[in-house]
Simulated assay, not measured.
Amino acid sequence: MPLAMTLVAGAGPATPPGALDAAGWHHAEWHGVAPARFRPLPDGGVAVEGDGEGSFVWRRAQGGAECLSWRWRVDAGPPPTDLTRSHGDDRALAVAVGFAGWPARVTFWQRSQHALAQAVAGSHPLPRSALLYVWGGTGQEPARFPSPHMAGLGMVRVLRPAATPHGRWFEERVDLAADWRAAFGGEPPPLQELVIGTDGDDTRSRLQAQVDSLRFGPCR
């Protein structure tokens, strides 16, 4: 899948103005994949439903890399899939943070792939790197691994495998600066976007999930 179709693409056809836009979220689609259905939640998050579908919402973020906290739950989602592979890697939820700068050891090839994706995205500036936190997968994936769709510009952590009990809220808190250093080396660049996505098209899975109470703040 090209970089422009990944979670941090921020590309795709614009959705009509509505509740999502009023809440500050922008809905975007992957080429050739029917979009899931998102709606805003009272505390700034979103709920998503789908039947073998996938898409994502994004909003602007700014400031330095601090800690990000949220809560999430899955009531229905894909079965375990190998998230290190580029085909069949469905997941119930992903919370991704896009950054305005490159990894410390970015290559010419990576810059070229990003430039191709940017040409597809048009006027929307794409993040140059990303951290992705996932509910899904087998639970056997490495602690951190490159997204198979992002030309090495996105690093994935599985926080909750697909076998995590459904119907319960789970609290998360991640140190973005520490994760950046572990993933890419060097000091993290400024934040650019926050993205929430779901993907159930390969397994044709029913999706019902929520992410809420998203907060950036100091790590204590």
Rank of each mutant, 00 (worst) to 15 (best):
P16K: 00
W135M: 07
R59M: 11
E193M: 08
P218W: 06
I196Q: 00
F184N: 00
V106E: 13
V46S: 00
F99M: 05
P127E: 03
V48E: 07
F56A: 12
V134K: 04
P80Y: 03
S69M: 02
D82R: 14
A23R: 03
T198S: 15
H27L: 14
P165K: 04
T107D: 04
G10H: 04
G77M: 05
L159F: 10
V95L: 15
W135N: 02
P188V: 02
P146Y: 09
G185H: 03
P189H: 02
L41V: 04
A143T: 15
A94F: 02
F145R: 10
F108M: 11
V74P: 07
R85L: 10
C219F: 02
W25M: 06
P161E: 14
V48L: 08
V174C: 06
W109K: 14
L207E: 02
G197N: 04
F108A: 15
P80H: 05
S55K: 09
A177H: 07
V211R: 12
G32Y: 09
L83N: 09
L126S: 05
A177K: 05
G64L: 08
T138V: 03
F216H: 06
D51H: 11
L126W: 00
H26R: 14
G50E: 10
I196M: 01
R91C: 05
R60E: 14
V74T: 08
R91I: 05
R168N: 09
I196P: 00
D43P: 01
G154P: 04
V156F: 11
A115Y: 08
P13C: 09
E187N: 09
A65I: 07
A119P: 00
H27P: 13
G32T: 12
L41Q: 05
P42M: 14
G18E: 10
Q210P: 00
T81N: 09
Q192I: 12
G77D: 08
W58V: 00
V120F: 14
W169G: 04
L126E: 13
E53V: 10
R105S: 13
A9L: 01
H124Y: 13
G139N: 11
A100Q: 13
G137D: 07
Q208F: 05
F38L: 03
A100I: 10
R173W: 01
A9S: 15
A14Y: 00
W58C: 00
R85H: 09
P161Q: 12
P78F: 12
S129Y: 11
V211M: 11
M150Q: 15
R105H: 15
P125H: 03
Q62M: 04
R85E: 14
G217T: 05
P2M: 10
A162C: 05
G136Q: 14
D212W: 11
G32F: 12
A11R: 00
S86L: 08
L153Y: 03
R37E: 15
L7M: 07
Q110R: 12
V46L: 03
G63V: 11
L68N: 02
L132G: 15
T164E: 13
E53F: 01
A151K: 02
G217C: 06
A36E: 12
C219P: 04
P40H: 02
A4I: 01
G63T: 10
G185C: 04
A130W: 03
Q210A: 15
A151M: 11
A178I: 03
W70Y: 08
P161D: 13
R91N: 10
Q62F: 04
R59K: 12
G217N: 06
T84V: 11
M1W: 07
A92G: 14
R220C: 03
E49Q: 12
T203W: 01
